[in-house]
Amino acid sequence: MLTQLLLQVAVAVSILLSVALAGVVGRDRLSLLREEWKSRLRTSAPAIALLLAILLLNRIMRQQGRSLSQEYGVHMTEVFYTIEGEFVLLFQAIASPEANAYFSISYVYGYVFLLIFPVVAYAALPKTIDFRRLLIAYSLNYAIGLVFYILFIAYGPRNVFVEELTQTMLYDNNPQVQYLTTEVNRNTNVFPSLHTSLSATVATFAYQTRSTYPRWFPIAVCLSISIMVSTMYLGIHWGIDVLAGLALAGFCVSLSTYLVDRWSLTAILKQVRERVHEYRDTVTTPSQKNS
């Protein structure tokens, strides 16, 4: 069932991707990417490595961090409920089978597409700066999100509004979806909403690059808003989680801009190499004298 479902998602997302790549990025950029991908990959290698490392850490820590979190984490469910009350239930006003389908699709397929598309789109640009910034912003989102997940234990609204959300709960309408989203097992990871922060990150990048990819900007904004609403509509996140997600996105985007090109790894390597050379010279010179 899982493989079947994964295949389903893969097929759907690849169709979306190919259409969007053709329509948004254009053939010229893609063919250029085919020629230059090696050199662009080399420039971006540190950012790619960082993202992969963070994703791996995220995977390990979501399992291992659980016990740590259970031991030392702060329980926040009641606090969130006290602050925002029944805010998320507002979205139940638009509840309908069509809305269920739309938001479930946005949450699962839309989200995957939204995260993957800009990676390819920015890799297709001759200048790798946006590509690297994006990867760093993703890494920051995951890394900071992980810390929050360990610090705060909070259950999503579906655990509080059990009765009210039965109709729109993602896991009851599309039971198979839970195999994909790991949240159902780690149901205490709600603050902040990573779905929100990553979507908002992508939307902000789309805004910043709107002159390059004018068609992508409106798509990204619509999709990311749909995803944010879906997290609350489906009873997965609190309004506060979404707000925190937005703040996290803002922070990660600006930090990524600040960090990228601040230190060039090649420059550092070059410097190190020079130092080593100098050192070798100073060591070898006296020894030559002695002999």
Binding site: Y155, R158, N159, V160, V162, E163, V184, N187
Partner: peptide, 11 residues
């Protein structure tokens, strides 16, 4: 218990 653990208990 949370609803994911025991729906009836939380209700």
């Amino acid at each position: 218990l949370s609803a994911d653990g025991d729906r009836e208990s939380i209700q």
